[in-house]
Amino acid sequence: MYRAVYKYYYDVTRFNLAFSILIGALRGVLSGVIMLGTLGMVIGLLCYQYFQKDQYYFYYNLGLSKPKLITITWVINAAACLLILIVLQDV
């Protein structure tokens, strides 16, 4: 189960990361980090929906619903975003 969740997280977050790094490069590190837990997530989910939506059935068969997958991914990224912001504040 964890392997499957990690696979989904990785697939969504790679789009998110690409977008957040781009924003970070254009508007500064802080903006990039904030994007990771907010709009970047939306971009990641939209890209997954566009390119890999049939793969949701892979997860449904394992008992992982779409809301459950999205919630897990969002919580991890929001926590990572918060953690990085706290570290950046201390630096």
Binding site: K7, Q55, Y57, F58, Y59, Y60, S65
Partner: peptide
């Protein structure tokens, strides 16, 4: 009213659903 992603059903859709990079 929602996808039965529980432990009672399994579904093979018409289109391929396996992640390609594993």
């Amino acid at each position: 009213s929602r996808v039965n992603s529980g432990k009672r059903m399994a579904y093979l859709p018409q289109s391929s659903f396996l992640p390609k990079d594993i």
